[in-house]
Design a protein around this nucleic acid. Sequence first.
DNA 1: TAAAACTTTCAAAAAATATTGAAAGTTAAT
DNA 2: ATTAACTTTCAATATTTTTTGAAAGTTTTA
Lengths: 167, 167
Amino acid sequence: MNYDEAKNKFISTWGSLGTLWGINKAMAQIHALLLISPEPLSMEDIMEELHISRGNTSMNLRQLMDWGIVFKENKMGERKEYFTSEKDVQELARQIAKERSRRELKPTIKVLKDVSNTQEDGTAKTKELIKQTKALHEMADTLDIMMNKVVGQDHNWITKALVKLIK
Amino acid sequence: MNYDEAKNKFISTWGSLGTLWGINKAMAQIHALLLISPEPLSMEDIMEELHISRGNTSMNLRQLMDWGIVFKENKMGERKEYFTSEKDVQELARQIAKERSRRELKPTIKVLKDVSNTQEDGTAKTKELIKQTKALHEMADTLDIMMNKVVGQDHNWITKALVKLIK
DNA sequence: TAAAACTTTCAAAAAATATTGAAAGTTAAT
DNA sequence: ATTAACTTTCAATATTTTTTGAAAGTTTTA
């Protein structure tokens, strides 16, 4: 496999993976492109490489910056804006874990908590609702604590965590 | 919050969460409904509760069964089929982890491995591609091992894992 | 302050995805 | 072997999501 084949394969795989995780294709592809690019890229560069429109590029870059995994960079004497990705994959993972906790896990936990506090009325269906949402609440809470633990961890947390789990 | 409010809130929250994770709304809602239902439900029951068509119900139940988290049940003397969800939330989590590893993580790992084996040609861009995909490969591999570790674990793995991570 | 070099916004169009429902398929009872 | 009771399939339709591109916005330069 030569460079171009490898690059395309990586970008398109990352793109479809994104879709599977609720991130749209363009956003995931832009991220992939920046991740393997040794130099920051301009909007033009990205549009050209991925064959997407200016508007699309602009909006998705903004989202990636909101996620805290892509940054603006300015080249001296140049007006144009350039973009880079967080290159340290463990930092990347931490950032994603942090954002997913904030955006998805935390709100879900709140709903589960509320729902599991429904007034008990003695019926089987209410009992079951309370029991199951309590169990989910507990699990989601544990997961969230784990994720946030991980977020505050040093660089090699993933390997260390693995070692702990295995032993 | 009374029973019906709580039930609807749970079902709709689970439904939109699903979307965010690449599972469609109907599928996630059917799952939510079965999870809190003390009795197995028939297709008619589900259609009626969620206001969805027969075909939709049939297809999504099939997918849930493919995921190994919903089961057919037959009531004696009845022709109709009934469905239940896996009720143990930790077993549910294990099953989901197992399937996601198989469907998403494993194939991604394979691509990362292939891509990171691109022929080195001395250029900076090839170096960067190899470096980054290698790092991702390593991380994905570690995650996969962790997930599969967890899958083979006993009932309370999640709590135990947490304890280990915290200490 | 006008023009040039950019970026952002957003309504409209396109693409992708999910849903419907009726016909075809299956199985069990008579 | 026919009918009844159910489930599955799938082409058509509806809905949701993404993408486009041109107009509006912003900042810098002359």
